[in-house]
Design a binder for these strands. Sequence first.
DNA 1: TCGCTTTACTTGCACGACGCAACTTACGTG
DNA 2: CACGTAAGTTGCGTCGTGCAAGTAAAGCGA
Lengths: 392, 392
Amino acid sequence: MLEARNPARPAWTAATGTALRVAQEVLLHGPLSRAELARRFDLTPGTLTRITKALMDEGVLTDAGAAGAASAAGASAVVDEARLGRPSQPLDVVGDGLEFVGVKVTGDHAYAVRTTVRAEVLRSADADLPSADPAAVSDVVADLVTRLGDGAARVGVSVGGHVTATAVRHGPFLDWNEVPFGALLAERLGRAPVLSNDVVAITEATHWFGEARGRDRFALVTIGAGTGLGLVTHGRIVMDDDVGLGLVGHLPLDPFGPVCHLGHRGCADAVLTTSALTTAASVALGRALTHGEVLALAGAGDPAARRVVEDAARVLGKLVALVANITMPQLVVIGGEGAPLMDVAGQVVRDAVAADRDPRAATVAITVQEGGLAAWARGAAVIAIQDFVGAR
Amino acid sequence: MLEARNPARPAWTAATGTALRVAQEVLLHGPLSRAELARRFDLTPGTLTRITKALMDEGVLTDAGAAGAASAAGASAVVDEARLGRPSQPLDVVGDGLEFVGVKVTGDHAYAVRTTVRAEVLRSADADLPSADPAAVSDVVADLVTRLGDGAARVGVSVGGHVTATAVRHGPFLDWNEVPFGALLAERLGRAPVLSNDVVAITEATHWFGEARGRDRFALVTIGAGTGLGLVTHGRIVMDDDVGLGLVGHLPLDPFGPVCHLGHRGCADAVLTTSALTTAASVALGRALTHGEVLALAGAGDPAARRVVEDAARVLGKLVALVANITMPQLVVIGGEGAPLMDVAGQVVRDAVAADRDPRAATVAITVQEGGLAAWARGAAVIAIQDFVGAR
DNA sequence: TCGCTTTACTTGCACGACGCAACTTACGTG
DNA sequence: CACGTAAGTTGCGTCGTGCAAGTAAAGCGA
């Protein structure tokens, strides 16, 4: 009996050990030839022939350019520099029929995306939450997943707070405690979703397919409804029961700033969140303003808005400097809905970072994350992707 | 021709892969039986028989209790809980004739220790530096090493600043730049020493044989002539070109504190170093005081000294809270010559840490490192040990 | 006292991952 | 059109490890 080649769905679960790591390397770093993979893993060409043959039989890898390859035609990530000798034959991950859904749940909204295996967003959908009731939230999430079509290989869902693989232990934005969110969703979806803390999810997305792709050590600072920090060292995210508590939100940044609900003066949550910014600007300008309006006014030169925005930028700089001085990241990514602050006052942030650093230290590399709310949902999709390819 | 068994010096270099990791596990976690090792590495007993047999042939391991075993008799780290069945047969690292020397060089002093393979201090020696001239410093270090006896398997030397494997790129306490310290010492010692940054060295010692033995993630905060931070995540120290610059020294901790030489107000170096403490106390009490005297007076209840010490303790608490909120360590170790501050005002520190934390977060576990200056020299010895056992 | 149970350790056999080295393939160049 | 170069393939041997049967050394109960 002949063995079926290229089964309907790539059999990532069959791969283990080196083969799994090879497949993940191709997933993360575009089409790669056997020779290149042999160099990266310090293996002989022969071993790579065997490993890739098995992965191709399992439907995980194909020749790049072949039907089903995950990379868009012509968007080859690897430029073949070699002129002499036999041309290399790049391999790519099979992306055909392999899609994922990620949903980010906030305190009043749910945002969903459907992506490729490389977390490229294909389409999205979102909805307000009628209430914070777990059943109602689960209904909304299930509806969004359905609207994005069936056949997704995995569904990832991210929530702020202390999240386990099956439940939300504590979700401050929804005021949830010990909610069996995984089971509630499984009932409605007919399958178990992959749950994750939202900051962990967006950090993994940044690490695998985003601004910090392949980095060994970086920090993601998110500013938005809250303040978050994702830390990757030695190529892996730092995990702890305390992630999701928003501990960075309590870092004292401005000795003359307002007091937060825990009594901390000038802590990150009290001065850096979008609501802190809009409140300060609305008071200064004497009218209610949205976050986007504040940034637009500041960009247009309005002195009051500019002052408020630059104050926030200086505080963000202090936060980045703290993180950089303690963890020495190769890169700091600024993400979250509040990230556009960097577009208006990026230089103020960079100057503030430099002011709190030793001049002999390396300049902190700072990048802004694109995508706004979609980036959060994409994070949830990446958690689903990681689960599918055996990386969790 | 018969192969020599139990050679004069254990052949750690012969071990690779799993065998090396097994030997290192025994080195770090005391005598361990084959069965216990099999459980820890998820290997079958058969594999462990083979691995340990090879290691015993190479003279790396012996039966615990046998002559040459590194553990002091009766000081077995593993209590045999089992009552039933054949008793396990603990294995230990061969420590016979295996000693190391570590030297810590400060701005005006050198401190040396000779240790066992488990970094237990056998004897020590120290000397003032006549000048900061590299040749003169090398002479002093070489003399200390000689005074501690010959036959050491490796010599480790640690210095503050940016230190490579062969040179001191920048040493602020000695005002050194691009000093080929390794070569200077090799001339005098007849062998190349193992060079390291001092904070890295003491962090490795804390990780391998100290308060954070076997921890996956911890932070070591040192206070003394300067302020230092060693960070271990995922079981490995975080390394960067910027370690050794003393970046934590610039963290703003006290908005009303004095200004440091870089213009940072109330940064760690300006308020936490031993000199900052003695200066503040001497001003308050109107007479010159040593660091020990200040702590003794505070301990005895002198109100001025107590105030100065508690102010420093609160600032240390802020520093620990910053580190804990950003890196979520399982443990924070307070080390360095200034660590006795914890004995006098430990509760003040702990209260200050708690004040800057989310009450839902885990209480930060804090331990004080013993040893004072010897701990630094022991760190240098551990770097030498790690080099010898193939862990660097 | 003598099995019986339990756990530790050893040993022969088999398999799989990988290095080695010879070979084939596919390109450009003189 | 032979030659050089680099990519990829294939057969063989080695090494690390699991498996499973066997041996060793203790306590316990009849």
